[in-house]
Each structure stands twice: as structure tokens, then as C-alpha cells.
Design a protein around this nucleic acid. Structure first.
Lengths: 204, 204
DNA sequence: CCATAATTCTGAACAGTGTTTAATTATAGT
DNA sequence: ACTATAATTAAACACTGTTCAGAATTATGG
């Protein structure tokens, strides 16, 4: 059999992405394979390679969908907060919550590396930049006299700091006792880093 | 052929670990396989499974060796620093340098997850704790009135913060411009977090 | 309406992976 | 010397990502 023409290429693409996300959520990253995705959408592997260059490209689209969901999760968490510090914490904790509840997809965001030194496409990088933008807005309110360079720097410090705490805490790599949790780490990180920025302001 | 008895189990174990490190350094994590390690030491896969339970256990030993090297790299960087803040920065920057120069092994430290929810053995966790201990010493000098809980917390915040900055910067996930680098992020992170801790002290 | 061209899709193949196990061989003990 | 024991291999199993010849269907042109 061949030439069913049941779905367009775009439809098959979207079906594959959805199926991959399903497998990721229900069976974990180790169980995701091209054959499994293909059979989940009622096709064979060959068809998958007609629609994606390789598995890497499929995963890139899965990651794009994840970035979109993370973006809207953060935006809705942001809606109820008014002071900039509360906003920054809302971002951090919705990030942590997302990592906890969508662990497989969240970790794929970082574990997935493009091969052969290929660059992610621009539309993908735009999604990443949009996320950093969400942090930059309240940060600029906290310290309006910041240069652009300092704003970029502070944004990345907060992002990678919170990310590192999430990653290591959720992977049990921090040898935390009962007293300290990821939440405590993030509170301390944000409070003290922002306090540090404020101190500088006084002495400058 | 069989029963050569050329090496003891411990020798084969050590040869395999060394060979795995070599492959990791020269060909990258994607090229590491049981057959390759086995042939590099002049044996077949079966012998490897006589000496390690599985590939996971071999990688655990590779990681243990990496932790040891990281420990001694930090200790030698620490030797020339005298003020606690300089010591904390020396730790952070030798961590960054280690990540840059031993990237494959450094990332294996975090990407390698034991399967089936198995726990790392105690002797491995001791090595991790020893690293955190290196941070705790100068941190306690900076702020001697800290509770144990606060010390554990601050240590992990600094560690995961610096780690997150290294990971994301080295993986090009931060969309940094030309102005900002991993070094700048780490300086900002440590300076402001410590300044934040100091501010608290005044107001408390 | 029919022949031909173009496309979709499959199924099998390839080279690789981790892991297990039967069989073989060299050594050690009696 | 003979046997029991331990070391080692080679082959197998079930999987992986990827490619590709060919089959089957649709679309096109005369």
C-alpha cells in the first residue's frame, strides 16, 4: 500500500509533534523513538523522514511547543502580581512549577543539543528571547538606571540562577537536607541578588 | 580463546575507566560505547559486564574520577587566595574553567542519570559533599552568624547559580550579545548575592 | 478514457547501540 | 594427570536512527 493521502504534510508534522509530547509525558524521554512516534500516528518511520529532516528536527518542534506553553504559563502567573519583585518571583516559581509538572519536556529543552554544530533557526531563538523579555520588564522597573548591558546581564544571571537551582534540586544533585528545598533556594537567590543590585545603587 | 588472566578485575576496571575518559575527551560523549571501551582495552564487551553491572556503573566511576579532578583543581585555585570573597570567586572561576576544558566529562556529571530510580552509592555522594564543603568554608567566614540551614542554603544557591550560568552560557542558550560573557555573569552573581547577604546583616 | 508522470508511503535493509548467555579455554587445586 | 573453577569470547536479542528501492495511488496531458 502507498499513497493514502489522508493528511497533509503539515498535519502529519503536527500529529507527530503531539504524539512525541504524549510519549514524553507518559513514558519518559528514554522511551521516545522514531518508530514509536510513527506508529502512534498510524504511519511508518519513512513518512516521518519525509516531514522532518531527522529526529533532531522533530525534537526542536517539541521544544518550540514547550517554550510556547512555558511562556503562557509565566504570563498567566504574572497577571496577578503588581510589584516588580513579586513579578520576578512569580516568573521564577512558575518556572519551577513547570519544571516539576512537565519534567520530561522541560529537561528536553536543555538536554537536546543540535548535532554537527548546527544553529537553531531564528524563529526558535525568537521564542527564547521572548522569555528573557518577560524577565527584563520587571527588572527594569526595579532598577531603571541600568544600562542595556547590565540589564541583559542581570536577566541572564537570574534566569540561569533559577534554572540551575531547578535543575540540580529536581535531579537530587544538591544533597539538600530536610530544611532546604528548591523554593527556599529560589527565594534566597532572588532576594539577595536584588538586594545586592540595590546596595550598589546606594554606594554609586 | 579464553582465560588469559592478564589483568585483575581491578586493573580491568581501571583500564576501562581510563579508556572511557579518553574516548570522551577525544571523540565526545556520542561516540562512547561499551564495544569501543572494550576494544580500547583489548577485551570484548562481555568482560566489561564481568567488571561493571552495566554502562551506568562505568559512567558513575568516570564521574567519580571527574569529581576528584574537579576537587583538586578547585583546591589548587584556592591556594593563592586569602580573602573569603576572592576564595569564592576562585572556586567559581576554576569551575568555569574546568567546564570549558573538560566539557564532555563535566556535562556527563549532570546529564548522567541513574536508571530505575537507583541511588548513587555513599562513597560517591561523599565526593559531592566534599565539593560543597569547599564553598562552605569561605562562606562561613563572610558571614559567621549564619545558621546551619542558612549556610547550606547559601552554598547551594551559589553552586547552582554558577553552575546554571556555566551550563547555559557554554550551551549557547542565553542569547548573550558580545558585551556579556559567562565570566561577567558569574562576577555579577557572586558580587550581588554576597552584597545581598551583607545588607540583610545590617537591617537584621 | 487511457497512458504516463508524479507523489505518497511502506518495508526492508544497514550500521550501530546495551545487554545476556552458551560455549570454550587456560589456570589452580587435588 | 584430572578435574573443577574462573576468565573470556562470540554470537545472539531486541532495540536505535536513518536511508532507499519499489509498490501503490493520485494527478496530469493527450
Amino acid at each position: 500500500m502507498a499513497r493514502r493521502n489522508d493528511h497533509s504534510r503539515e498535519q502529519i508534522q503536527q500529529m507527530a509533534i503531539t504524539a512525541a509530547i504524549g510519549i514524553l509525558n507518559e513514558e519518559g524521554p528514554g522511551q521516545l523513538s522514531t518508530r514509536k512516534v510513527a506508529s502512534a500516528i498510524g504511519y511508518t518511520v519513512g513518512t516521518l523522514y519525509l516531514v522532518f529532516r531527522n529526529l533532531d528536527e522533530l525534537l526542536l518542534h517539541v521544544n518550540a511547543a514547550t517554550l510556547d506553553e512555558l511562556h503562557s504559563a509565566i504570563r498567566s502567573a504574572l497577571a496577578n502580581q503588581h510589584t516588580p519583585v513579586e513579578q520576578l518571583k512569580a516568573i521564577a516559581f512558575s518556572y519551577l512549577e513547570f519544571a516539576r509538572h512537565q519534567y520530561a519536556r522541560w529537561s528536553l529543552l536543555y538536554s537536546h543539543q543540535l548535532q554537527n554544530g548546527e544553529q537553531a533557526p531564528a524563529w526558535f531563538n525568537d521564542k527564547v528571547n521572548a522569555l528573557f523579555g518577560l524577565v527584563e520588564i520587571p527588572l527594569k522597573t526595579v532598577k531603571p538606571d541600568m544600562s542595556h548591558k547590565d540589564l541583559v546581564c542581570a536577566t541572564r544571571v537570574l534566569w540561569s540562577g533559577v534554572h540551575g537551582a531547578c535543575e540540580l534540586a529536581l535531579n537530587n544533585k544538591l544533597r539538600l537536607g530536610d530544611e532546604v528545598s528548591a523554593d527556599v533556594l529560589i527565594h534566597s537567590m532572588i532576594d539577595n541578588y536584588l538586594a545586592g543590585l540595590a546596595c550598589e545603587q546606594v554606594t554609586a
